[in-house]
Nucleic acid binder design. Structure first.
Lengths: 136, 136
DNA sequence: ATCATCCCTATAGTAGCTACAGGGTTCGGG
DNA sequence: CCCGAACCCTGTAGCTACTATAGGGATGAT
């Protein structure tokens, strides 16, 4: 069976990733260096396609580049226990929960700020006032 | 009455801001350039203190630098209607709400991912599997 | 042959700081 | 009067995760 290869543009389309981003992932070592054609174009394999899909999915779930790097390293060593993978995911979940709480607190403050705007002039604007020094 | 002045360190302490950040705000024009002492040290006034407090409070509420810049410009012109201020705050609130929704969706996905980890080896890890291509 | 469309490298820009390096200033003690 | 500590100065590079040029070469269709 024929080895299927992709140009960077084809890989980009297949993974909904910009070509620049693919080159960036290669540069920082998230993606192995692909082969080259006679005209020096990158030539990606189905292996690259799989790996890039993995990276994109993990990034979409909000894992950092370093976390993705760790997950990739672990997934390459199938005979080791799964705990480390679980730990990375749990750590990420903790961060997500913290961000949600922070943003919800923020929303409450913004809500009360906006509720106070009486549509007068800036001089008597409660929003500006609340931001100005001398409060709390 | 004596004009009170502050060194950058004093201003930093008074506003819980690092000195580097204060210099940065000056450089990008969020803070007016302060006077200088004979030894070329910055000399801030109570006006600077007020303005920096405003900036910090707005930043803590998640307003971007550009939004803070707009708010500052508006607060300097007390005789204009308050609508523009309200609009900036509402726009920010919309963004915050969107972020909260996105993160909550993320959390649901992470939750189901983590729930599936059966503590086996990486080869049979559901998390890795869910990230790998061939799903959906 | 020519043009559009792809691709290449290298570099700089984004947000919002933070962290140096390599100096000068000020102030208190000895 | 000098020394060291603690402060301050400028300028530049680093951080995340890309994105966007500039200035070229390669490929494919007409």
């Amino acid at each position: 069976m024929a080895q299927q290869t992709f140009s960077i543009g084809e890989l980009a389309k297949a993974t909904a990733t910009k070509a620049e981003t693919i080159r960036y992932y290669e540069r920082i070592g998230l993606l192995p260096k692909p082969g080259r054609t006679a005209g020096n174009y990158r030539s990606f394999s189905t292996g690259h396609l799989g790996r890039l899909s993995f990276v994109r999915r993990a990034r979409d779930l909000g894992f950092s580049i370093e976390q993705v790097r760790d997950l990739l390293g672990l997934s390459d060593q199938g005979d080791r226990p799964c705990e480390a993978v679980d730990a990375i995911a749990r750590q990420h979940l903790t961060e997500v929960n913290r961000k949600i709480r922070d943003l919800q607190a923020l929303r409450r403050e913004l809500d009360s700020l906006i509720g106070q705007c009486g549509q007068g002039t800036v001089a008597e604007c409660r929003i500006i006032e609340a931001l100005s020094p001398g409060h709390e």
